[in-house]
């Protein structure tokens, strides 16, 4: 299950060199209650908390340090409730990566993910966008309604990446974000200027709560 992550060999040199930071827009789409906000919370704070249904869209950021570049993920965690459906294009337009999230214990959310997929393909899909199918709530094995094979074969058919996660236990969440980071570098980063550089303006430092690097240990070998 999931993507095999490329191992990044340690390179002490990269640590001393100033690294470029590139902005990556990632959108989370899927039915209400599948765990998009819970995944986003895992990505950014490695926590699992009670959440309320999202209102409109929540914007969060998380830096991921790869060997040669730092990606600043700008995560648009959309609301799955139907009343927001009509405004969702506002949030997914121009995304470099889209996570189509469903709940493995609810078949209708799997159907819903496919509706989102169709909408993306129709309106916006470009070959360089990383589309990732995510079957969340992997911990609810006993209530599973969508098998992993089914998810995987949909992904294969439509050229998506696929991972099953659990925001509750944290299983595969970190790997998912890293996987997206690598794929974005490969698919999008290859095009000149596809990712804009992120310049920290001085005053942003003051409220710099979100850029700690939890991934340091697994992406690059620290001192």
């Amino acid at each position: 299950m999931g993507e095999k992550l490329p191992k990044v060999p340690g390179d002490p040199d990269t640590l001393s060199r100033p690294m470029r930071t590139l902005r990556v827009k990632m959108v989370l789409l899927g039915a209400s209650g599948v765990g998009k906000s819970s995944l986003a919370l895992r990505f950014c704070k490695d926590e699992f908390r009670r959440t309320s249904p999202t209102v409109g869209c929540a914007y969060l950021t998380q830096a991921v340090h790869l060997r040669e570049v730092t990606l600043r993920f700008e995560i648009w965690d959309t609301a799955g409730e139907e009343k927001y459906h009509s405004v969702t294009p506002l949030y997914y337009r121009g995304a470099h990566a889209a996570l189509l999230v469903y709940d493995i214990s609810k078949r209708d959310t799997f159907i819903r993910a496919q509706v989102w997929l169709r909408e993306l393909e129709k309106q916006y899909f470009s070959g360089s966008t990383v589309l990732w199918l995510v079957g969340n709530k992997g911990d609810l094995e006993q209530h599973r309604q969508v098998s992993a094979q089914e998810g995987q074969s949909l992904a294969n058919d439509r050229g998506l990446f696929f991972t099953e996660t659990s925001a509750l236990s944290g299983d595969q969440v970190e790997q998912l974000l890293l996987g997206v980071a690598h794929r974005v570098c490969e698919c999008v980063g290859a095009q000149q200027g596809a990712l804009s550089e992120w310049k920290e303006t001085p005053h942003v430092d003051l409220c710099h709560r979100n850029t700690f690097n939890r991934f340091a240990s697994c992406c690059k070998v620290g001192p």
Binding site: S37, S52, T54, V55, G56, C57, Y59
Partner: peptide
């Protein structure tokens, strides 16, 4: 009331039609 009734606004920055 909208803000008080939901803890959703505690998650990051919200951008929503209203």
């Amino acid at each position: 009331n909208l803000i008080g009734a939901s803890s959703a606004f505690q998650a990051g920055e919200i951008w929503t039609p209203i």
